[in-house]
Design a protein around this nucleic acid. Structure first.
Length: 891
RNA sequence: GCACGCGUGGCCAAAUCGGCAAAGGCACCUGUCUUAGAAACAGGAAAGUGGGAGUUCGAAUCUCCCCGCGUGUACCA
């Protein structure tokens, strides 16, 4: 054992040993019957560099993987690559590189970074989304879903960047601006393939019950908000045809307008039906509508295509179309308006406007001077409302209440009325109960090269024809003209798209769009269980052993994307008989972002980041930035943003590993903040992590020979107080650390281990002079310390463990286990019971841990110091908290 | 606007159920060793928990109001 801790030396040693022995390679059903544990972290996109967010994510996952191994589980801990995606194409456009070469080079670099961190993966199981062996099964799933009616094609509006001529996902169009060029995003009609996520809305909601306890509440809340289930009713408003003017209704035009409402109880307050500019009724009547109306409708429709400002409140706009409908409840004729606040893609694209009881309708009515009629009353106001015809409302009354001015329904509560009025509508054939959702089907078509080709063929004779399973994979060509103009590069590669029809074998064309890369990540962790399977995505039995994932860790930015898609995918796989589980992930941990200070200039409309080193920063007393000036004297804006290379606020994990070692870097990242918090990067603390490791190292070095010499327990030697206290601390720490892991806390166990190491130093005996019980206590403490440190600092721990056991086969080969906690030993022989008088601490008494309450009370009352405060006073009552404290209330 | 979350030494943070005089680390100060050190060791100083009110024998912890910060979301009928 070296006198000093040399991180690099031992890290290289153990990384080599782990690799050689295949320490983390696992198989199903080991002979010893250990239970399985599937530890998973979100797979990285191979951008070329690991960032601190990855280090945080993977350090936490690795800690749990080690913890579970030491707890005797058969732990599957894999890693792979989300290696399809746009950055590879950007690199192709910018630098003319081949996306595949670029991607694979990045993977090589990043794998090296992961290995230098000493992460305990079963590397044999790596998956790469961009290999035909993997994306073959994206296509396989697509075909299966096509068979099941879960994949279909339709025309839709997609986010579109005019400048780049590119389709954008919602994220890439976030804030209404294109993430690449900063120009506003518009909408564009495009034919897209969809996966029918909406077929699973209710299951996605209901199955949350299964995972509720072990998923962060905010993730599930965001998912249910996203799904946006809303219960209400459809109500049909008939178009009124003026007498003798039947011909006014254009041929084929709908006879009624169906609205969706959650508040059918307010229907007597409707003053209009408002439809979206894109509503079919408008198109049907376009020829007869006044030019003014048509102009307005077109204007609103055009506005709808434009990007929305992030925070801008859009002013209500609209126009009376001149059409009339009949309120089916009251028989009252109502005007049909077009309103810019009604969206075609939610509900039916038409609403009944009830200004008295809906804020938007209220605002609309105010602006256009439409009547506002209150039909729901606060219960205590009911009488007043019946007698007074009109009450001027200051704002919409949106609460439930009692119906007024609603004919037959007067006096009913909103709750009752909703049910009964819906029934009435059903009975009279003009409505029905309805549930609508905000969730849409998942549009997966991308006009990109670097993705899995959609296995569909278009034949002039047979139409849309799915590829045959035996023809998979449909391989990407080696090269395609990637120009970044937003047209499918594959559409310019005749060798790719020219094919024959799988049905009639006549000439046909392939689909040239590729799949959204979220398809790859929807099922990748099932592939890990059986990565070499050529027939199926994975063997169902193999997957049944390993899945569901026991613990998943990743950023919560995926809450409504990846995490909802993968839940959807699991249900589809269940329905196709591949799996039997409803939920793919048992327990989820979302870690906070690692962020750093950024400095930028956005005067040109685009953010230009400046490296922190080149910025002069002024700070207030608390260290908050108050100003920043660039090298050439230009004032800069500043913020705290996710770390990344391009913003110049990144920290290179390799550099940290080089300077401090992987173990120290990992300890620091785990210790710096609770895992779910945002971590504002501040490197100051990392020295502490190194120092801690050095302390542990020196500790074992100092005690090494004393521990090795089997100083037998001399029966004469009674256990010293020092060793008793150390054992107590050791066992308390074992409990704390174990509990922390179980509750997914990583910062507190590190603190506990620091305390334990301090406690060993504090034993107050030199190794040479220690008696047998003290040596035993130290041995127990440092062994436990080493084992418990393993999840955070596996290299150093392996090395220290090898010193303690006298071989360097490694912990797993030695069958090492997480130390066992003994309640007996953790318990203090005597505990200090604080004694309060009127809630203020006045004294302490010593008592055995099992002292009954009555005895504690007696001791407290008898205590001298306490009596100074109680003598001569009336004791009102005494509160004894078992094993904790005594409080005497006096008057 | 709405929803959710957070506010504890200079900084990061800990504190099952409400229960001691509020952990640990970083930074800081002093001393020892001393060739010196940002090393190591020993020791020290430092917060009554954003503000106010309430509940309670007892509040960082529960309730209400206010202030500040963060995240998500936005005309979803």
């Amino acid at each position: 054992m070296d006198e000093k801790y040399f991180a690099k030396k031992i890290e290289q040693k153990w990384q080599r040993k782990w690799a050689e022995s295949g320490a983390f390679e696992v198989e199903i059903e080991p002979a010893d019957g250990r239970p399985k544990f599937y530890q998973l972290e979100m797979l990285p996109y191979p951008s070329g560099n690991l960032h601190m967010g990855h280090v945080r994510n993977y350090s936490a996952g690795d800690a749990l993987a080690w913890y579970k191994r030491l707890r005797g589980f058969n732990v599957l801990h894999p890693i792979g690559w989300d290696s399809f995606g746009q950055p590879a194409e950007d690199a192709a456009v910018k630098r003319g590189v081949n996306p595949r070469d670029w991607t694979e080079e990045n993977i090589k670099v990043m794998r090296g970074q992961l290995e230098r961190l000493g992460l305990s993966y079963d590397w044999r199981r790596q998956m790469y989304a961009h290999t035909p062996e993997y994306y073959k099964f994206d296509q396989w799933f697509f075909l299966k879903m096509f068979e099941m009616g879960l994949a279909y094609k339709r025309l839709t509006q997609v986010n579109w960047c005019e400048h780049d001529q590119a389709t954008l996902s919602n994220e890439q169009a976030s804030g209404g601006l294109c993430w690449r060029c900063g120009n506003p995003v518009t909408k564009k009609d495009l034919e897209q393939w969809f996966l029918k996520t909406t077929a699973y809305t209710d299951q996605l909601l209901e199955d949350m019950a299964e995972i509720e306890a072990d998923w962060p509440a905010h993730v599930l809340k965001r998912q249910s908000d996203w799904i946006g289930r809303s219960e209400g009713a459809f109500v049909d408003f008939k178009i009124r045809i003026a007498t003798g003017q039947l011909s006014q209704l254009p041929v084929g035009a709908p006879e009624k307008i169906r609205v969706f409402t959650t508040r059918i109880d307010t229907i007597y307050g409707a003053n209009a039906v408002v439809v979206a500019a894109e509503h079919p009724i408008i198109a049907a009547h376009r020829a007869t509508l006044s030019p003014k109306v048509v102009e307005k409708v077109d204007l609103i429709a055009a506005e709808n295509l434009k990007p929305k400002e992030r925070d801008a409140e859009i002013e209500k706009d609209g126009i009376d179309t001149g059409l009339k409908v009949i309120n089916p409840f009251s028989g009252e004729p109502l005007p049909v308006w077009v309103g810019n606040y009604v969206m075609m893609d939610y509900g039916t694209g038409a609403v009944m406007s009830v200004p008295a009881h809906d804020e938007r309708d209220f605002e609309f009515a105010k602006k256009f001077g439409l009547p506002i009629r209150q039909v729901i009353s606060e219960p205590h106001m009911e009488h007043a409302h019946h007698t007074m015809q009109v009450l001027a409302l200051e704002q919409a009354f949106t609460d439930y209440g009692v119906l007024v001015h609603s004919d037959y329904w007067n006096g009913k509560t909103s709750d009752d009325a909703k049910v009964q009025m819906t029934d009435w509508a059903v009975k009279h054939g003009f409505g029905e109960a309805a549930t609508t959702y905000r969730l849409r089907d998942w549009g997966i078509s991308r006009q990109r090269f670097w993705g899995s080709p959609i296995p569909i063929v278009y034949c002039d004779d047979c139409g849309v024809v799915p590829e045959k399973f035996e023809n998979l994979p449909i391989r990407l060509p080696e090269n395609a003209p990637i120009t970044g103009t937003g047209e499918s590069p594959l559409a310019k590669v005749p060798e790719f798209y020219e094919t024959t029809c799988p049905e009639c074998h006549g000439p046909a064309k392939r689909e040239t769009d590729t799949m959204d890369t979220f398809v790859d990540s929807s099922w990748y962790f099932f592939r890990y269980t059986d990565p070499g399977n050529e027939i199926l995505p994975f063997d169902p039995e193999t997957a049944a052993y390993w899945t569901p994932v026991d613990q998943y860790i990743g950023g919560d930015d995926h809450a409504v994307m990846h995490l909802i898609y993968t839940r959807f995918w699991a249900k589809v796989m269940r329905d196709m008989g591949l799996v039997t589980i409803d939920e793919p992930v048992k327990r989820l941990l979302t870690q906070g972002m690692v962020v750093g200070e950024t400095f930028f200039d956005d005067s040109t409309g685009k953010r230009v980041y400046h490296l922190p080193d080149n910025v002069t920063v002024t700070r207030d007393a608390k260290g908050k930035i108050t100003g920043a000036v660039s090298k050439d004297g230009m004032p800069l804006k500043f913020g705290i943003e996710r770390m990344s290379k391009s913003k110049g606020n990144g920290v290179d994990p390799d550099e940290m590993v080089e300077i401090y070692g992987a173990d120290a870097a990992r300890i620091f990242v785990m210790f710096a903040a609770p895992i779910e918090n945002e971590l504002v990067w501040n490197e100051a603390g990392i020295e502490g992590a190194v120092r801690f490791l050095q302390r542990v190292w020196r500790l074992i070095f100092r005690w090494q020979s004393a521990l090795a010499s089997e100083r037998l327990a001399d029966s004469d030697v009674t256990e010293s107080l020092a060793s008793r206290k150390l054992r107590q601390k050791t066992h308390q720490t074992i409990k704390r650390v174990g509990d922390s892991f179980d509750s997914l806390q990583f910062n507190t166990p590190v603190a506990a281990l620091m305390e334990l190491s301090n406690a060993v130093y504090d034993i107050g005996v030199e190794p040479e002079n220690a008696n047998a019980t003290e040596v035993a206590a130290v041995r127990e403490a440092v062994t436990a310390l080493t084992l418990m440190l393993t999840p955070f600092a596996p290299h150093a721990s392996e090395e220290l463990y090898s010193v303690l056991v006298g071989n360097d086969n490694g912990m797993l080969a030695n069958g090492a286990r997480f130390p066992e906690y003994s309640e007996e030993l953790a318990r203090a022989d005597e505990i200090e019971i604080p004694v309060q008088v009127n809630g203020k601490l006045r004294s302490r008494v010593m008592a055995g841990p099992e002292t009954p309450n009555e005895e504690l009370e007696r001791m407290a009352l008898a205590d001298e110091k306490t009596r100074e405060y109680t003598d001569g006073k009336e004791i009102v009552k005494v509160i004894v908290v078992p094993k904790r404290l005594v409080n005497i209330v006096v008057r």
